[in-house]
């Protein structure tokens, strides 16, 4: 299969005859990274699957107006991030629960998740990550697991690099303390 750059795929997408093909290529290129990004936030596979579909549905509708001010993958990540945060916010409102209870529910989902094959230490690490506020959790996951550059995270979350570094530092410290005292 011929590899196209993002800009080539965007050009193909604007051609009605190539639109489906181009979008399919984009989906195949980014689906895994976006899925794991969402999954680490919402924990449950079915929720992550729904949100990934919503992400690409919104991308399909909005791609016509994508001006190319940012990289395509940054744009996809931003949509996925908004979907995940909106989902968690809606969950909190739906059950009239304070944030801490949503996190408890996520921990409970994690413990009963049949699609989790980590060992006990990894489970403890995930539980520690779930104690972080959602945005701090995003920063930690993107930096620690996805090994993204601060500059890219800054574009996705629309936050300064300095603030991201401080946020990651606090998150790592908190997790370290939780694991040490666990």
């Amino acid at each position: 299969m011929q590899e196209h750059s993002d800009s080539e795929l965007l050009s193909l997408f604007r051609n009605p005859d190539q639109k489906n093909y181009a979008f399919n290529m984009m989906v195949r290129r980014y689906q895994e990274r976006l899925y794991w990004h969402i999954r680490k936030m919402v924990i449950v596979h079915d929720d992550a699957d729904d949100l990934l579909q919503n992400t690409f549905m919104k991308a399909w509708k909005g791609l016509e107006n994508f001006r190319g001010d940012s990289l395509l993958f940054t744009w996809f990540y931003r949509i996925a991030t908004n979907e995940a945060l909106s989902f968690l916010q809606a969950k909190k409102k739906r059950y009239l629960l304070p944030v801490v209870d949503v996190e408890k529910e996520l921990v409970s989902s994690l413990e009963g998740d049949s699609y989790f094959d980590g060992d006990d230490l990894q489970l403890r690490l995930q539980k520690a990550i779930l104690t972080l506020p959602p945005k701090q959790r995003l920063v930690f996951n993107m930096r620690y697991y996805d090994e993204m550059k601060y500059e890219d995270i800054s574009q996705i979350l629309d936050t300064s690099v300095g603030a991201l570094k401080a946020s990651y530092h606090h998150a790592a410290k908190k997790i370290e303390n939780i694991i040490k005292n666990d």
Partner: peptide, 20 residues
């Protein structure tokens, strides 16, 4: 950043524990 995470990263294998 490695300094921040190396203490628990040394004990916890850095891999994605989720599956599909």
């Amino acid at each position: 950043q490695k300094e921040n995470t190396e203490s628990f990263a040394g004990r916890v294998e850095k891999k994605n524990p989720f599956t599909v």
